[in-house]
């Protein structure tokens, strides 16, 4: 794969979200970090970790629906990534890393002893120190509304079938394009699109009250489509 396919900085079309990691150092792109990590430079590898750990953790969280299990899977994925960094042959480092995270999450899902079904309510109820969704607006009322919206969005995501939840997470929350999402989900691009449509349609039904409340949808008396 050629260098021209490497991502440069934040990809276009990325959802605007509050940054939770430091921005990448100018001039040091993924390929350079990866090359140095392949030479055994742990500092370079940890720069990659710092850059992608939020995305990795969020993907694991969405797949496993448990903060503790997601934490374990993310850490395991980064260890695995370091051990196998020699097999990275270029292309999208983000896709490569998220593929490892998805594999680690799948392994966790398959392991009965590690299967956890803890709800994300622990996060929304203040179970996480510092709060899970850092919003810049400190206004208590608005923050409460946003937190409630987030809780409903994440609850709705959790109710999607696993295959749809994965592609919706990858494309709409992680900002991957179809090709990257197909690589991580290990399905053809056409399947990514069809799962996206079905997942979004299901979310539309599940989130109808939220959307009506926010004024994005007209209120319906029957509450369904």
């Amino acid at each position: 794969m050629g260098r021209s396919h490497l991502p440069e900085g934040q990809p276009e079309g990325q959802p605007e979200a509050v940054p939770v990691t430091s921005p990448p150092t100018p001039g040091q792109d993924d390929l350079e970090w990866a090359r140095r990590a392949q030479d055994g430079d742990l500092v370079a590898f940890n720069a990659i970790v710092e850059r992608y750990q939020a995305r990795a953790y969020n993907l694991a969280l969405r797949m496993l629906r448990s903060p503790a299990a997601a934490e374990d899977a993310t850490q395991e994925a980064f260890f695995s990534a370091y051990r196998h960094i020699g097999s990275f042959r270029g292309g999208s480092l983000r896709s490569w890393l998220l593929t490892i995270v998805a594999n680690a999450a799948r392994d966790a899902l398959r392991a009965p002893s590690r299967r956890r079904t803890t709800s994300l309510e622990a996060y929304t109820e203040g179970g996480d120190p510092g709060g899970p969704w850092p919003h810049p607006d400190p206004q208590p009322d608005e923050q409460a509304v946003r937190a409630e919206t987030s809780r409903q969005v994440h609850d709705a995501l959790d109710r999607l079938p696993e295959d749809q939840r994965l592609v919706v997470t990858l494309v709409d929350l992680e900002g991957l394009d179809y090709e990257e999402a197909a690589q991580v989900a290990r399905v053809p691009i056409g399947t990514v699109r069809s799962r996206l449509f079905r997942g979004r349609s299901r979310l539309r039904d599940l989130l109808r009250p939220v959307l009506e409340l926010s004024g994005d949808l007209p209120r319906q008396s029957n509450g369904g489509k």
Binding site: P15, E16, V18, A54, G130, W133, P134, T149
Partner: peptide, 9 residues
């Protein structure tokens, strides 16, 4: 709505 969701820290 989905894209407005920030990443979980």
């Amino acid at each position: 709505l989905l894209r407005a969701e920030p990443l979980v820290e």
